[in-house]
Amino acid sequence: MTQQPAASHLAGSEAPSAWATGFIIFAAVMMMLSGAFQALAGLVALFEDEFYVTTSDYLLQLDTTTWGWIHLLLGLLVVIASFAVLGGRIWGRVIGVILAAISALANFVFIPYYPVWSLVVITLDVFVIWALTAHGRDIVR
């Protein structure tokens, strides 16, 4: 009689719950939306410099073109990671949590330039982090 490792034995015997599967799909779709919003904000900053109004007394003063590149690249990375999450990849969940945290921080710093948009993306990032950390392990393939 051979003994199987506990992790593979449990993963093979229990099917993921419908709630866990739903939350992971929710997280992946929210990552796609958040990444698309970020990329759109980045493109706007790159093509229309006067769209975002800068404040004079803000701690981190970056050019809107710099913010455009930050948001565009971060958004595209989040969208790519969302497909890995849909595929049930552990690395996709890890990258998804890391990118969602970075995205939330970047948008927190971006609040003076476009507050409502930044707060919407931060909210989406918080939901993504919650779904990936609370229910992500239930859907590993």
Rank of each mutant, 00 (worst) to 15 (best):
G42P: 00
L43D: 13
L43E: 01
L43Y: 07
V44A: 10
L46G: 01
F47V: 15
F47I: 15
F47C: 04
D49E: 15
D49Y: 13
E50D: 15
E50I: 02
Y52L: 07
T54E: 11
T54C: 09
T54Q: 13
T55K: 14
S56A: 15
S56M: 12
S56I: 15
Y58E: 14
Y58R: 09
Y58V: 15
L59H: 12
Q61H: 13
Q61R: 14
D63W: 09
D63K: 15
D63R: 14
T64V: 15
T66H: 11
T66D: 12
W67D: 05
W67E: 03
G68S: 00
G68W: 00
G68C: 02
G68F: 03
G68T: 07
I70A: 01
H71Y: 02
H71W: 07
L73P: 11
L74M: 12
L74R: 10
G75A: 00
G75K: 10
L76P: 02
L77I: 11
V78M: 11
V78I: 13
V79T: 11
I80C: 04
S82G: 01
S82P: 06
S82E: 00
F83H: 04
G88Y: 03
G88A: 00
R89D: 05
R89T: 11
R89F: 02
I90P: 09
W91M: 09
G92S: 03
R93G: 10
V94P: 01
I95P: 04
G96A: 12
G96N: 05
G96Y: 04
V97R: 04
I98D: 04
L99D: 09
L99G: 08
L99N: 06
A100T: 06
A101V: 13
I102N: 08
I102V: 14
S103P: 03
S103V: 04
L105K: 11
A106Q: 12
A106E: 11
N107F: 12
F108A: 09
V109P: 10
V109E: 10
P112S: 05
Y114S: 11
Y114T: 05
P115G: 07
P115E: 05
W117M: 07
W117P: 03
W117N: 08
V120Y: 09
I122Q: 01
I122W: 07
T123D: 00
L124Y: 12
V126K: 01
V126P: 00
V128D: 02
A131Q: 02
